[in-house]
């Protein structure tokens, strides 16, 4: 494990920094989150719509961050980072999704509740 003979600053992972990308990311994500905030404080839409729209906004924001901040791409320097993340993505969905699914059924079958109170899993 000898120290690299090359200048560490010439490493592709140093070189991929992009000031423009970071600024763009900042603007887009701040605005997206601001839009979500506006929706939720003004109660402009129905609760269900709010959940759907803000989730969508979050997905877009995270996509932008993944590309501009985390540099998820298929370049030679980054490909394994990207592959590793793609491997994890479905597992996040499985962990949260299947858990929500099983507890949704469980609550419906075991909890006594008033029909008027909506809750996260029951909308």
């Amino acid at each position: 494990m000898s120290a690299s003979h090359h200048d560490p600053l010439s490493h592709p992972e140093v070189q991929l920094a992009s000031g423009r990308g970071y600024v763009a990311n900042f603007l887009v994500t701040t605005l997206l989150m601001g839009f979500g905030l506006w929706l939720s404080v003004t109660h402009a839409v129905a609760p269900l719509t709010l959940v759907a729209v803000t989730s969508g906004i979050a997905a877009v924001a995270v996509g932008v961050q993944a590309y501009l901040l985390l540099h998820m791409n298929l370049s030679e320097a980054q490909i394994w980072h990207t592959v590793a993340m793609i491997l994890f993505l479905p597992l996040f969905v499985v962990t949260i999704g299947l858990t929500a699914w099983m507890f949704h059924g469980l609550y419906a079958r075991t909890m006594i509740m008033s029909p008027h109170i909506g809750a996260f899993l029951h909308r």
Binding site: M102, G105, L106, R109
Partner: peptide
């Protein structure tokens, strides 16, 4: 045996 829905 947790009592999840039959579909689950």
């Amino acid at each position: 045996t947790m009592a999840a829905a039959p579909s689950v």
